Simulated scan of single mutants.
Amino acid sequence: MAQQAYATETDNGGSGPERPGARLRSLLKRWAAGWRDRRIWRRGLITAAVALVLAVVLAGHARIPNRIGNLGSLTETFLPWFGLLLPVLLVIALVRRSATALIALVVPVCVWLNLFGGLLFDKNGTAGDLMVATHNVNAENADPAGTARAVAASGADVLALEELKASAVPTYEKALSSTYGHHAVVGTVGLWSKYPMSDVRAVDIRLGWQRAMRATVATPSGPVAVYVAHLPSVRVKLEAGFTARQRDTSADALGEAIADEKLPAKILLGDLNGTMNDRALRAVTSQLRSPQGAVGDGFGFSWPASFPMARIDQILVTGVEPQSSWTLPETGSDHLPIAARVKVDTPGS
């Protein structure tokens, strides 16, 4: 009798294995029915408002003032990550069965794709006659020789290193000597090249110590002015916000030096402690372009190495044609190295 009762209960859907499926079908039917009533236009108004605010922030980030804690620059540093809110809002809109929220969500999706959609695809090519790379090696790097060998193995023709500790410079020089026949170190930055270098000099970025340099690299396709820079770090403090005044002052000075450069082909390599979206770097970014946006491989985030969240290490060019750009594998530093291929076609080459 017990077995017969159990079978009857199962057949009726009381507690048998088909019951969870029936419950799911019931939930889906109720959810689908919710789209057929008029409340779909009244539900989710808050979600719709959040979506429109997000669109305004994405489209108008340049108008967010820096007067209060450099809020504008802070927003622009992590601007791509605002896209993570889009799937969250989509799920909320679907759960709430809100047509208003879904329509409103189209606006920030379009704005985000316009800003960053091109970075979702690998546009790397194989052309280019000059490969350059840059790496903030971290002054506290426990394995400078290993880091040097790793970046040299990338095949870069010209390599810039930043945050060079004086005591570690001989280690880097020794590790790189077999690959690069020419190099120069100025303060805490250095440049290694397979091609002859001349007119090497420090660049004053108004710090009181040397963290920037320039050199003429005699590539087979013509001379290129190569700049290496490590702009001051920025900090996020509760009482002061995004503090970057020293970085901004140095960026302006670096921009002036690049503007005064006589050679038409220019490449800037270094840790700028800012992204291409950060308006504080406009003195530099208004003159040079990043290969990452045109021929890069994804977003190319370079910091922190363990979980990259922003591309603050930059390769910027003018007078040469970018062909590809990518990040290199992690080393003993807290930054990822980045590399790019360019085509040098200077007058008279």
Rank of each mutant, 00 (worst) to 15 (best):
G293M: 05
V295E: 12
G300A: 06
R282H: 14
A280C: 02
A305I: 01
S306G: 02
V295D: 09
V295A: 14
L288F: 01
S302H: 04
P291C: 07
T285N: 14
R289N: 02
P308L: 00
F307A: 10
S306P: 00
S290D: 15
S302N: 10
L281V: 07
P308R: 02
F301E: 03
F301Y: 15
G300E: 06
P308N: 01
T285F: 03
G293W: 07
S302K: 06
R311T: 10
S286G: 01
M309C: 08
F307H: 10
S302Y: 12
V284S: 12
A294N: 12
G300L: 01
V295Q: 01
A305C: 13
T285R: 05
S302L: 08
V284Y: 07
M309F: 10
G296K: 08
S290V: 00
P291R: 02
P304C: 09
S290K: 02
R289A: 12
V284A: 04
R289H: 08
G293D: 13
I312M: 04
S286F: 00
F301V: 09
V284E: 06
F307G: 03
F299A: 03
G298L: 12
R311H: 00
S290I: 03
T285I: 12
G298V: 10
G298N: 07
I312C: 05
A280F: 03
W303M: 09
G298E: 04
A283K: 15
G293K: 12
I312P: 06
R311V: 08
F301S: 08
V295L: 04
S306M: 06
L281I: 06
W303H: 15
F299C: 10
T285E: 01
W303S: 14
M309L: 15
M309N: 03
A294I: 11
Q287M: 09
D297M: 06
G293Y: 01
L281W: 02
S302T: 15
R311E: 03
M309I: 15
F307R: 01
A305M: 09
V284Q: 10
P291T: 07
I312T: 09
G293H: 14
S290L: 03
G300H: 05
L281F: 05
P304G: 11
V295C: 05
G296C: 03
M309V: 15
R289W: 00
R282Y: 09
I312K: 01
R311N: 05
S306A: 14
F299K: 04
F301C: 13
G293P: 04
G293C: 05
F301M: 14
Q287G: 00
I312W: 05
P291D: 10
P308A: 05
Q287F: 04
G296E: 06
G296N: 07
P304R: 11
G298M: 05
L281D: 07
A310C: 05
V295S: 09
R282F: 15
R282P: 00
R289T: 15
P304W: 08
M309D: 00
D297A: 11
F301I: 04
S302R: 13
M309R: 08
A294M: 11
R289L: 11
A305K: 10
L288S: 09
G293I: 02
F299E: 01
A280N: 14
V284W: 03
S286P: 00
